[in-house]
């Protein structure tokens, strides 16, 4: 498979997953606040963390004076000038899909293209104004469709593995960021006045883990159990441990487990992280400090993402063999922002 194609499939999956996570985050927060009592009096404590997970606090502060649900939703859903909005995530997913249209099924392409047409329509803006929940659900359903179609139409070859890598890396990243939004709040439970049960419920709902966790845990809403479930449990498909395992499986299918001496960088990095997560206990995590621990996970994820790019797309080791012509002025990888499209214009016969 072409390197650029692999990178585009990887990013297509990442951007779709990103749009899905954002929609769920906005939907679950809004839902939760509807029937919250006193704890929700200061709504910025619920909306602020969402901006943290997307890393947009600064950009947001430049546009809006205060953190309010209305404004955060506006900022993250359909704003064309926010590169991380749902709209722009879907556009990026769609542009990447378009560059690899010949490699993905028509059904998959139509699903992404359909979602992007919807988001750009006046209908979407009106729906987001009047029935926000329906708007988010529409995006969520499209993302589930995307995954379902991908799963049932993608051959289990490189396309599938790169798609899985993108999806799971994005999900692992978002799960850690979500958990991190709760790392500063109390692990106490009611009736302790410090307890914030609503915030912990929000964490579960934002990860689609509410029902799964209820069924799993006898100790209903114990914060430490919730964190352990989302971080270390390898049965729930949005937990960090599950995502790492899925990535590892995809990666082994791509490069084989190989012998230690010629092991590729991503295999080594991911294998080590998988072992770390498998053998660490919750007590050790808390002893180290939840925020510090998550910080480390995030930097490992960044290294892994970079090593994918170096190994499969940019391959510095082979580049040296290529005859010295002129240095490539265009990047080799996926679509992220508009390049100088004038360069690609020529008249058509």
């Amino acid at each position: 498979m072409l390197s650029r194609v692999a990178d585009s499939i990887y990013w297509m999956a990442r951007y779709m997953e990103r749009a899905e996570n954002l929609s769920r985050l906005l939907l679950s927060t809004q839902d939760l606040l509807l029937d919250a009592g006193e704890e929700a009096a200061d709504e910025s404590q619920f909306w602020g963390p969402i901006l943290m997970t997307t890393g947009d606090e600064e950009r947001y502060a430049k546009t809006y004076p205060t953190i309010e649900g209305e404004l955060v939703a506006d900022f993250l859903a359909l704003r064309a000038d926010n590169p991380n909005s749902i709209l722009n995530c879907v556009r990026a997913a769609r542009e990447n899909a378009r560059t690899v249209r010949d490699q993905i099924s028509d059904e998959l392409w139509e699903c992404i293209n359909g979602l992007r047409l919807f988001l750009e329509s006046p209908e979407a803006a009106a729906l987001h104004q009047s029935q926000r929940a329906s708007f988010y659900e529409r995006v969520l359903v499209a993302s589930y469709q995307f995954q379902g179609i991908a799963s049932s139409t993608t051959p289990r070859d490189e396309s599938w593995h790169f798609l899985r890598l993108g999806l799971c890396l994005e999900r692992a990243d978002k799960t850690t960021r979500l958990i991190d939004t709760c790392s500063a709040i109390s692990f106490d439970m009611p009736p302790n006045p410090l307890a914030r049960p609503l915030r912990w419920a929000a964490l579960l709902r934002s990860s689609s883990a509410w029902h799964a966790f209820q069924a799993y845990s006898s100790n209903k809403l114990n914060p430490a159990d919730i964190v352990e479930y989302l971080l270390l449990n390898d049965t729930f498909p949005r937990s960090f441990a599950w995502c790492i395992e899925a990535m590892h499986t995809a990666l082994i299918s791509l490069c084989g487990s190989g012998r230690l001496e010629d092991m590729k960088a991503p295999v080594r990095l991911l294998g080590r992280l998988r072992a770390d997560i498998a053998y660490i206990t919750m007590e050790e995590v808390l002893k180290e400090g939840l925020h510090e621990f998550i910080d480390q996970l995030q930097s490992k994820l960044n290294d892994i993402g970079a090593s994918f790019f170096q190994t499969f797309v940019n391959y510095a080791d082979i580049t040296a063999e290529i005859e010295d012509t002129s240095s490539p002025a265009l990047s080799v990888g996926a679509w992220h922002k508009a390049v100088d499209d004038n360069m690609q214009i020529q008249q058509q016969q």
Partner: peptide
Amino acid sequence: PIVEGRDLVLKNDRIFMRTTKG
């Protein structure tokens, strides 16, 4: 495959495409 110019390289007067496997 559909390729762009940046996917192709010249080596020994031959044209190669950059794939995930080299």
